[in-house]
Design a protein around this nucleic acid. Structure first.
Length: 89
DNA sequence: CATTTGACGCCAA
DNA sequence: TTTGGCGCCAAAT
């Protein structure tokens, strides 16, 4: 199982309305420092069935996304996650 | 095989 | 509070 597949699995588990941090995902994979690689994996895989918008930064900012925060924020809000500007609650 | 890239995280100025 | 710099890792070049 490749690194990205693991990331994929973890993110897929994320319940609707809940968000994970890259750090948290990385921790599940065994090492917190993998946070970067996690984001990288999502970026490269970009699977449509992968709720990558539920993955945020540890400082609670939305973090990276495709085409500005709007897209991700919108999706998150649709799932019941409230956002204050770029901050996730 | 050596470097660069990137959706991160933390700390010091 | 906002920058900038450094460390860390996987995948792409």
């Amino acid at each position: 199982m490749s690194f990205q597949e693991k990331v994929f699995a973890v993110v897929k588990k994320t319940p609707r309305g809940q968000v994970l941090t890259y750090q948290q995902v990385a921790a599940k994979l065994g090492n917190v420092k993998l946070a970067r690689a996690v984001g990288n994996a999502l970026n490269k895989n970009r699977d449509s069935r992968m709720p990558c918008h539920r993955v945020i930064r540890s400082d609670r900012r939305v973090g990276g996304f495709n085409r500005g925060p709007a897209r991700k924020i919108k999706l998150l809000k649709s799932e019941g996650v409230k956002i204050k500007n770029v901050k996730v609650l």
